[in-house]
């Protein structure tokens, strides 16, 4: 008896090379590797699983129905990729990021990335030296959970997990996952907590005993809000907070070019007559914004609100006094 992977390849080749659609029974009797002694129901279940596996690999299998039976064929236009032409610097960039991430267990999608690059023909050739170490020492577990959660985001299946918050309190959560993002060594989940009926952000490194609702696997458990966009939740550290305050930060002319990179698409930037960049941004935590300004400096200044300037003034005076 052939092994299951062999049978799947045979089925793929059979469907891809057949000039006419073929029925399940034709596949069964074609010697592709389906056991002879199998009863009809068992065969049909196996055949359905095989078609799902081939679809997951990228084959687009279409179904023709008539009165007697369904027949199947590969939609070649929808299945096979066109060649991709990349400029030398684009190719080098893809190879560098692939070399770095495909060897990093902290990247949740290493296997899929390798297969994607194989399909694009960009893998398999030595590129620039590159390496990555995305998450911290919780990397492997975080990465595994992030992969599972990203899959649940796509299939819209509800998650359950234990969570330890920053205060050390543990609680069980049931969450409809809307999106995932990565920042500074951590993966985060954004989802609607069913008990709170509110959208919350969870550090995936703090998640334990993660479960995905296995009931009705082909049916989504929830609808994601149509306007959901993960980038709106990918905030800077000082943006978290209950009350948002309009703040202004100025970048001196020599470092104005850094403003766009540091702003990360948050707030609005404008250039002043002297070449400075002025950043209008909402802050939920002015103390953290004050810290951010010093951390990212020099040549970055608080303009307003007055409370922000006051926090900096009193804080800096305390620092100067303590070190006097």
């Amino acid at each position: 008896m052939s092994d299951a992977a062999e049978r799947l390849v045979n089925l793929a080749l059979y469907l891809a090379s057949s000039r006419v659609p073929v029925t399940a029974n034709e596949c069964r009797s074609a010697g592709l590797g389906y056991p002879d002694e199998q009863d009809d129901a068992t065969f049909l279940r196996m055949f359905e699983r095989d078609k799902d596996a081939l679809r997951a690999a990228g084959l687009v299998i279409t179904v023709d129905r008539d009165d007697e039976a369904e027949s199947y064929r590969i939609d070649a236009a929808a299945t096979f990729a066109r060649p991709v032409e990349l400029a030398p610097d684009e190719l080098a960039a893809v190879r560098a990021v692939a070399a770095a991430l495909s060897a990093d267990p902290g990247f949740p999608f290493t296997d899929d990335l390798a297969l994607a690059l194989g399909k694009l023909g960009t893998a398999g050739v030595a590129g620039p030296l590159a390496t990555a170490d995305l998450p911290d020492d919780t990397g492997d577990a975080q990465s595994h959970h992030a992969r599972t959660i990203a899959e649940a985001v796509q299939t819209r299946k509800t998650l359950t997990f234990g969570y330890t918050n920053t205060a050390g309190e543990q609680k069980q959560h049931t969450v409809d996952p809307y999106g995932v993002f990565f920042r500074e060594g951590n993966w985060y989940l954004i989802g609607c907590d069913r008990d709170l009926d509110a959208v919350r952000t969870y550090a995936i490194g703090r998640v334990a005993a993660l479960g995905v609702n296995a009931g009705r696997p082909r049916t989504p458990d929830f609808e994601r809000p149509a306007d959901f966009d993960v980038t709106r939740h990918e905030r800077l550290p000082f943006e978290y907070g209950l009350e948002q305050v309009a703040a202004q930060v100025r970048f001196e002319p020599d470092v104005a070019w850094r403003a766009e990179r540091l702003a990360r698409g948050r707030g609005t930037l404008r250039e002043l007559a002297d070449g400075s960049a002025l950043w209008d941004v909402e802050a939920g935590d002015l103390e953290r914004l004050a810290t951010w300004i010093i951390d990212e400096g020099p040549a970055i200044h608080a303009v307003g609100p007055p409370e922000l300037v006051y926090i900096l003034e009193t804080g800096l005076r305390a620092v100067a006094d303590a070190h006097g």
Partner: peptide, 8 residues
């Protein structure tokens, strides 16, 4: 080559 799946 096959086109990219959603996971890829």
């Amino acid at each position: 080559p096959l086109r990219l799946t959603i996971a890829e």
